[in-house]
Write a protein that binds this DNA or RNA. Structure first.
Length: 871
RNA sequence: GGGGGCAUAGCUCAGUUGGUUAGAGCGUUUGCUUGACAUGCAAAAGGUCGCAGAUUCGAGUUCUGCUGUUCCCACCA
């Protein structure tokens, strides 16, 4: 083995081997319990970012853990066609070649899109492999694969026939840049500084004017009424009269409607049903005409007269000027308000009336809410359930049609002759009503998230009754970011319940955003994104994986930092070198099962620590507390195993006693092997590479059983006793440092104790680790002679002759400060034990422990006092 | 307007049924080439756990209010 950890030597090789040996393949096995995870399919538009790296690492860790525990673990990978995002990119790409969608046509465009898909989805797969993802690549699914299309059509067909999908003219969010409708979830709001334009609308045949205030004057052409509050005494009498729409000079009615807020602005609202969701509702209530005045590209239409064809903002400017000239403009006041933007291209969206397809959410939402309420699905951490309820309870119908070409085309055909509308699972070539072949399919495609919503079952063969679907569905855990609760998680839940009659997954494990070192969101515009591939190249995949999990709490945002990855790389190096040491010492030795080894106190101690680690890691993993699990492993491996145990066995390894050497090596191998198995789900590469070099192992670690807690090996009392030995070592080291004594200088140890035999049996360890030359058991302090430093420990009192290094004043001060500490502890324990409430109400075990502690401290205090007297 | 998160060592963060003297990494100080590792070892300094109450024998942990900060949702034309 090389002297330092060098992941480049083995990561790619191991991954190839795992793959070639079919280690990731999940085949139905009725003797095993299934464990299923569906990978949130990355978009084919981009490359892997840190968010993906965290998401995939968490999934891989959970899946590898379960696989080792004996589950039939399926992790199914995929990629998403990302309808709008991809289409935007392809349009950009074509623009460079001087081409437009219209120029290449639908077929030409789709050809380009598929080429894009072929080029990019492969890249993402390569990147996922670099991370070590143990997914079943034979099942790699693309959201526009044949099987997904089949599922999409089935679901659409069923919902259509249940009247849960309908087509209608409603207010939707329109992106004038992407030229498509968007769902509510696809609009992002940001506060912008705009203006409030106050405009006079004169009452017909009168000098009286109503003053309306608007932030979007250009929509005025679509005004079909002016509303006042029916309770508003100022305007009540005008209800039913007409006002003249300026510029257009058209009379429109004054209506009374509660929508007009008496307190806000002038209390008069212009009503533009075609361009505002609230106005649309008012329009419905008062039977107002809906007049659209804007084109799909954000320019004004013919109804705006001279503004026809002008951009919406240009029109705004010119119109305001005209109003000013006409004397209708009363005032302009600055006004900050929230403006909606397209989540893909950032353009300001226009609320526009448009004929679109919708999913009726009433009826779908309730069961989806109940599934979480009834704990059929558990959110981790729980708090995200609130976000989910809140959204689900207020959800509006889902606009699913997009005026795009890249995506699942809506499976509805229209007959040009008889006007029939035909929804079908299969392509239709003739009208079933009139037989006409003059029919055409709906031009629009479906929202990307419509197919994503079916992901947990479309990937397993739905709508067919496949064996996989029966075995692997419902899936077990969905791992994803909290930012797509609405887009995806919620929609998978109601879709699973509606179409499969079962929840799509039992747990949802949320993670937060990976931010940059300063806590900012990683983004292209800031240029602060860190490429996981570069990090892997520099530090190795295991280092990155560990750094993304260690000490991270579920659902919390984290900061990426090079220094953290570096410290994790150091941990890998530590594991590497400790293993190298163990393997080196195995040469020519008999490595026996630990059950055949006569265990020494230190052995029992490390085995006890190992068992505790196994127990705690398993508990943490089962609760998805991956950050905690990593911390436990880190501490066990580094502090317990490397810093203490390896140092403890060195004297044995260098002794001439063959049996002792064999025993030491056997325990080393046993502990290391188990530790590697514990660590494997998180850091698969380095653990497997080492595992293959261990004696008595064969094949890969990834198919071995995950360690099980064994109560017989817990050795609680032995472990506690051994801590006493460690206390002696720590005390000597501290004294040396304090007195500026070189660590290499050997000292003698005088000990007053009732544990002579136990200390003697660990003498070698103490001498080696403390840097001592001998241990002498004495009965009183005097025997230790003058110039000693005293350490009062639980296992006994330690006297260390330090010769001229001893400064009596300092020693006195040191003992006094120790006395203070012990006295404080006595006061604390005493206080507790004198509290009748504590005695009567606290668990007995706790009271006893406290009492034992008190006794221990009292004893220590007496010893310290005695020592102070002699000084 | 509604709902969350966060506030713990100089910095970044853990701390999940309330119970040892509140932890880690990085940084800082001191000393070490101790035959796996200087990507290392040892020792140490550093915290009234945002503030004020409440519940409890016992609160970093539960509840209420407040302050600061941040995110999400809704949205007034």
């Amino acid at each position: 083995m090389e002297k330092t950890y060098n992941p480049k030597n083995f990561e790619d090789r191991l991954y190839r081997e795992w793959e070639e040996n079919g280690c990731f393949k999940a085949v139905r096995d009725d003797d095993k319990v299934p464990f299923t995870v569906m990978m949130p399919p990355p978009n084919i538009t981009g490359k892997l970012h840190m968010g993906h790296a965290m998401d995939e690492t968490m999934q891989d860790t959970v899946v590898r853990f379960k696989r080792m525990q004996g589950y039939c673990a399926l992790w199914l990978p995929g990629t998403d066609h990302a309808s709008i995002a991809t289409e935007v990119k392809i349009v950009e790409q074509m623009k460079k070649d001087g081409l437009t969608k219209e120029a290449v046509g639908r077929d030409g465009f789709l050809k380009r899109a598929w080429e894009w898909k072929d080029a990019y989805s492969g890249k993402i797969v390569t990147q996922l492999k670099k991370l070590g993802s143990s997914c079943d690549w034979s099942r790699l699914t693309f959201t526009m694969d044949e099987k997904c299309s089949k599922a999409v059509r089935e679901v659409f067909f069923n919902l259509y026939n249940k009247k849960l999908i309908y087509r209608g003219s409603r207010i939707i969010n329109w992106c004038p840049c992407c030229k498509t409708a968007l769902s509510d979830a696809e609009v992002e709001y940001a506060e912008e500084n705009g203006n409030f334009w106050h405009i006079k609308y004169f009452v017909d045949n009168s000098d009286i004017a109503l003053e309306v205030a608007t932030t979007r004057p250009e929509t005025m052409f679509g005004d079909t009424a002016v509303a006042v509050n029916p309770k508003d005494k100022r305007y009540k009498h005008l209800i039913g009269k007409n006002v003249i729409l300026p510029v257009v000079n058209k009379p429109i009615p004054v209506v009374g409607d509660g929508h007009a807020d008496m307190e806000f602005g002038t209390g008069v609202v212009k009503i533009t049903p075609a361009h505002d969701p609230n106005d649309f509702e008012v329009g419905l209530r008062h039977n107002l005409p809906v007049v659209r005045v804007m084109n799909d590209d954000g320019t004004m239409n013919a109804l705006t007269g001279k503004y026809d064809g002008m951009d919406r903002y240009e029109c705004r400017k010119k119109l305001v000027e005209e109003l000013k000239e006409l004397g209708n403009l009363v005032s302009v006041e600055p006004h900050a308000h929230n403006v909606g933007h397209c989540y893909r291209c950032g353009s300001t969206v226009e609320p526009i009336v448009s004929k679109q397809w919708f999913v009726k959410m009433e009826g779908l939402a309730r069961p989806a809410i109940n599934a979480v309420l009834d704990k059929k699905i558990t959110f981790v951490p729980e708090r995200f359930a609130k976000t989910y309820y809140n959204w689900m309870e207020n959800v509006k119908d889902w606009c699913i049609s997009r005026q795009l070409w890249w995506g699942h085309r809506i499976p509805v055909w229209y007959c040009a002759d008889c006007g029939a509308e035909i929804c079908s699972k299969n392509d239709v070539s003739a009208c079933p009503h009139c037989g006409s072949e003059n029919i055409s399919q709906d031009e629009d495609v479906l929202d990307t998230w419509f197919s994503s919503a079916l992901w947990p079952f479309s990937t397993l063969g739905y709508p067919d009754d496949t064996s996989d679907l029966e075995y692997f569905y419902p899936t077990d855990v969905l791992v994803t970011g909290y930012d797509i609760i609405f887009f995806w998680v919620a929609r998978m839940i109601f879709s699973g319940l509606e179409h499969m009659r079962k929840v799509p997954f039992r747990d949802v494990l949320f993670h937060g955003l990976v931010r940059d070192e300063k806590g900012r969101k990683m983004s292209k515009s800031l240029g602060n994104g860190v490429d996981p591939l570069e990090v892997i190249d520099k530090y190795g995949a295991d280092s990155l994986r560990f750094s993304l999990l260690q000490g991270v709490a579920p659902g919390n945002d984290t900061r990426y930092s090079d220094t953290k990855v570096e410290s994790c790389r150091n941990f890998m190096n530590k594991i590497w070198n400790a293993s190298r040491f163990v393997i080196m010492n195995c040469e020519g030795r008999k490595v026996k099962p630990v059950s055949e080894v006569k265990l020494l106190p230190a052995d029992k101690w490390i085995i006890a620590k190992l068992q505790a680690a196994i127990r705690d890691v398993t508990l943490a993993m089962n609760k998805f507390e991956l950050g905690v699990a990593c911390q436990i492993m880190y501490d066990f491996m580094w502090s317990d195993f490397c810093d203490w145990y390896i140092e403890l066995v060195k004297p044995l390894l260098y002794s001439d006693d063959e049996a002792k050497r064999d025993g030491a090596v056997s325990v080393l191998v046993y502990v290391l092997e188990n530790a590697l198995k514990l660590l494997h789900p998180v850091i698969p590469f380095v653990t497997d590479e080492i595992y293959r070099s261990l004696p008595n192992t064969d094949g890969t670690i990834m198919t071995k059983e995950f360690p099980r807690y064994n109560a017989k090996l817990a050795y609680k009392k032995d472990a506690l006793a051994f801590e006493g030995i460690m206390d002696i070592v720590k005390a000597v080291r501290a004294v040396k440092t304090e007195l500026d004594c070189p660590p290499a200088k050997k000292v003698s140890l005088y000990i007053v104790t009732e544990n002579k035999r136990y200390i003697s049996s660990n003498e070698d360890s103490i001498l080696k680790l403390a840097g001592a030359k001998d241990i002498k058991f004495i009965c009183s302090a005097e025997e230790a002679g003058a110039n000693t430093v005293t350490k009062v420990l639980a296992i006994g009192t330690l006297y260390i002759p330090m010769g001229e290094l001893v400064d009596f004043e300092k020693e006195k001060a040191r003992l006094k400060s120790e006395l203070e500490k012990v006295t404080a502890e006595i006061a604390r324990a005493d206080g507790k034990l004198n509290n009748t409430g504590f005695i009567s109400k606290a668990p007995k075990k706790l009271v006893e422990e406290e009492r034992a502690k008190l006794n221990k401290y009292i004893e220590m205090r007496e010893k310290i006092l005695a020592q102070l007297k002699t000084l």
